[in-house]
């Protein structure tokens, strides 16, 4: 079932046409990877899915991004609600300089989701369990999040994103600051999370896209060149540009 339906979507940074007539249907509870050389527009497209680009001056969009059938660029959309439903994790782990517990509870408090301390405690526990941090952290919940390793910090950021019960998680190069072992652990986590969430990931690392995603979009110069099942993209792509890119001939 299609969770995110992008139709004829265009984005301009002032006069620069960054995304050109993109149409993709992203399915529910799968990992969709966006790959392509630097500047191809993959991060811009990802950030359009929860309207984070709105914060950039001069951004203009044309076309639709429908989530569960509703165009998120409609005038009456509650952007705060949208961003709660569409969580985001960034390149560098960015925990707040507060305790581990407070990091996870932050979204619940800001959005006034938890009605009691008991519910907050339960949500923090569930979120930390989802990212496999609970067993190690349950006795250190009130330590500063900045004392964690980079991999643990990124797990914490994912826990913070899922604490507010989103349906979709966007990940913008979530492993680019991690070493190979930590990268593998985060990848395994993503594979587990896909059973509950629709995940869209932007990655420069083609091998990562191949390892973890079920669908892959290849972008070039603001255009979507090919969108297909990941195994098709990496074994038998239909477009020459895709073949050249995945086989390392350019980019």
């Amino acid at each position: 079932m299609s969770k995110i339906e992008i139709r004829n979507f265009n984005l301009y940074y002032a006069n620069f046409h960054a995304l050109k007539d993109i149409s993709i249907s992203i399915e529910e509870k799968r990992i969709t990877a966006m790959i392509g050389p630097s500047g191809c527009g993959k991060s811009t497209l990802l950030r359009s899915i929860n309207r984070i680009n709105d914060t950039i001056e001069g951004v203009k969009t044309v076309g639709e991004i429908n989530i569960e059938g509703i165009n998120i660029y409609n005038d009456n959309i509650d952007v705060d609600f949208l961003r709660r439903n569409v969580g985001m994790v960034f390149q560098r782990p960015n925990p707040f300089p507060i305790s581990i517990y407070e990091n996870v509870a932050f979204g619940l408090r800001v959005n006034r989701i938890a009605s009691s301390k008991e519910i907050t405690d339960q949500t923090v526990e569930k979120s930390l369990k989802s990212v496999l941090l609970w067993d190690n952290m349950k006795d250190k919940l009130h330590k500063s999040a900045l004392t964690l390793t980079l991999e643990q910090q990124q797990r914490l950021c994912i826990a913070r994103a899922i604490a507010v019960a989103p349906h979709i998680i966007l990940l913008d190069e979530p492993c680019s600051s991690l070493d190979p072992v930590a990268t593998r652990k985060i990848e395994e986590l993503m594979i587990q999370l896909k059973d509950e969430y629709t995940i869209v990931i932007v990655t420069h690392n083609m091998q990562q896209a191949a390892r973890i995603s079920q669908d892959t979009a290849f972008m070039l110069l603001g255009k979507l060149i090919e969108f297909s099942k990941t195994d098709e993209i990496f074994t038998n792509p239909s477009k020459k540009e895709t073949d050249d890119y995945v086989s390392g001939r350019f980019g």
Binding site: Q207, A210, R211, T230, D231, F234, T235
Partner: peptide, 9 residues
């Protein structure tokens, strides 16, 4: 086998 090689290197 082909997919395991292509997708996992």
């Amino acid at each position: 086998c082909l997919k395991l090689i292509a997708l996992n290197q």
